[in-house]
Computed example of a mutant assay.
Amino acid sequence: MLAELSPAVIAEVKLAATLLASKERICILTGAGISAESGIPTFRDKQTGLWENYGVEDLATPEAFARDPKLVWSWYQWRRQLVADKAPNPAHHALAQWQYHAQTSEQQVTLITQNVDDLHEQAGSAVTHLHGHLWRDRCGQCEIPYPEQSRAAYIKQDTIRFDDKLITCPHCDGYIRPDIVWFGEALPVQAWQTAEEAAANCDVFISIGTSSLVYPAAGLSQLAKQNGAQVIEINPDPTPNTIVDITLIEKAGVILPLLIEEITAL
């Protein structure tokens, strides 16, 4: 497999593997790029069909939900239907394998994601979600979680379907909304605390499939660097970031299985 890559990329993979195998605390941040390899459109992809005339301000803000809850709910039900059959790709499986391997080694591998899908969980990873969960709901008024539904529950014909009919909260009659962090909303306190602590205390910080330009998540790599960590970026379109020590310019699904194979062999 390594032979299929350029000599320059091979050298960087081996350098990264040697570094990672020698360190105890690893913090990993994944973004839309890793899920895109499973066929899940990124949020910045152009909307198509019914949604092509709507922007972020119409579909993913608290103001949008207050203005037209049915429109926002319908869009998220459409998104759920769109990703329901998507499966983890080799990158997700490699990260899960690494976490499993770390249980019997000296390493601590903390996985943080900006994604709202459950592909990391499907692959077997323990992961902290910064931007919420596509398959969970809560009340938009009293914030109480709505009875949790899994992806499997959504697609079973005898339970919840992808119905765009609004649901009301049994506690306050407010409308149920997706448990997603919308633009203009704060990140979940516990999730952000976990991410900050992992970044501040890691030996190596790895950014995978994310531009590292959207804050506050983009600040995690800087926090890690300030505390002495080395930074690795895996992205076919790397960002102009001066704090990165090793850049692996290739898709995560190509690089990660090779990288984990090298790490576990050392």
Rank of each mutant, 00 (worst) to 15 (best):
N89L: 02
G49S: 04
Q108H: 09
E63W: 12
L15C: 03
P88F: 01
L29S: 07
T42V: 13
D85R: 15
Q99K: 01
P7D: 11
Q114H: 05
Y54I: 02
K46S: 14
D118N: 14
A123T: 05
C27S: 12
Q107M: 12
Q103M: 08
R80Y: 01
I34A: 00
S35T: 04
L95T: 08
L50Q: 13
P69M: 10
L15Q: 09
R79G: 07
C27N: 08
H101P: 02
G39E: 04
T110D: 15
K14D: 11
L59V: 04
R79I: 11
V116D: 03
R67I: 02
L111I: 04
R25A: 12
Q107V: 01
G39D: 04
W98M: 03
L50N: 11
R79S: 09
L95S: 05
H120T: 11
C27R: 03
R67C: 04
H92I: 06
E24N: 13
P88H: 10
A16I: 04
K46F: 08
S35F: 00
D85Q: 13
I34C: 10
A64M: 05
T48Q: 15
W98L: 12
L19M: 15
T61W: 05
G33W: 01
D68N: 13
A11Y: 06
E52P: 00
A11E: 13
A8S: 12
S35R: 01
D58T: 00
W51I: 13
S38T: 02
I112V: 11
A66F: 07
V116M: 14
D117V: 00
F65C: 00
S6A: 12
P41N: 08
G55L: 03
D58P: 04
Q108A: 06
E121A: 15
H101D: 06
V109H: 00
A8F: 15
I112A: 06
P88Q: 08
E12Y: 05
H92S: 03
A96F: 09
Q47H: 03
E57N: 11
N115F: 06
